[in-house]
Measured scan of single mutants.
Amino acid sequence: NQASVVANQLIPINTALTLVMMRSEVVTPVGIPAEDIPRLVSMQVSRAVPLGTTLMPDMVKGYA
C-alpha cells in the first residue's frame, strides 16, 4: 500500500506548503504520493485543505 500526502492541519487557500503541514498516511483513495513531499514544499494550495484531507494533484498549484 502506498502512502499519500495528508494535511496535518487546516491549510488556507493560497498557502505555501511547509513540511509541518503534511504527513504521510495510507489512505483511500490514493492522493499525491508521500515521496513527493519534498517537491511540494513552497508550492501553494489552490483551495482550503481541511485537517486530515488527502492532497490530490489538482489541489496544489503547479504540481500536476
Rank of each mutant, 00 (worst) to 15 (best):
R23F: 05
Q44P: 08
T53G: 15
L51N: 15
P50N: 12
K61A: 11
V6K: 04
R39W: 11
I11P: 01
S24M: 07
L17A: 00
M22Y: 02
I13Q: 14
I37V: 09
E25F: 05
A3G: 13
E25D: 09
S24R: 13
G31Q: 02
P33T: 08
T54V: 08
I13E: 14
V49P: 02
S46T: 11
S42Y: 11
N8L: 06
P29E: 06
R47D: 06
P57V: 05
P12E: 14
R39Q: 10
P38V: 08
P12H: 07
T54L: 04
A16D: 10
M21A: 06
P29M: 05
M56S: 09
A7M: 05
V60L: 11
S4I: 02
E35V: 15
V45W: 00
T15C: 03
P29N: 07
T28I: 15
S46G: 12
S24G: 12
L40Y: 02
N8M: 07
G31M: 03
S42D: 15
P38G: 10
L10Q: 11
T18F: 03
S4T: 06
V60R: 00
V45N: 03
V6C: 03
P29H: 06
N8D: 13
M22T: 01
V5P: 01
D58L: 06
A3V: 06
D36T: 07
M43R: 11
S24F: 07
N8Q: 13
V30H: 14
N8W: 04
P38L: 11
E25C: 04
A34S: 12
M22F: 06
V30D: 11
P50V: 06
P38F: 14
M59G: 03
T18A: 07
L40G: 00
G62I: 03
G31R: 02
V60A: 00
T15G: 05
V45R: 00
I37S: 04
V60E: 01
P12N: 08
Q44R: 09
S4A: 03
A48R: 12
D36N: 15
S24H: 13
V20D: 14
N14S: 06
V20M: 15
E35D: 09
Q9H: 07
L19T: 14
T15D: 04
N8A: 11
L40E: 01
L17W: 02
N1Q: 14
L51R: 09
V60W: 00
R23T: 08
E35G: 13
T54C: 03
N8C: 04
I11G: 00
R47S: 10
P38W: 09
I11W: 02
R47M: 13
K61M: 14
V49H: 02
K61Y: 13
Q9R: 11
L51A: 14
K61F: 12
M59R: 02
A16P: 14
I37Q: 06
L55T: 00
L51C: 04
R47Q: 14
L17S: 00
A16H: 10
T18D: 10
A16T: 08
S24L: 06
L19P: 13
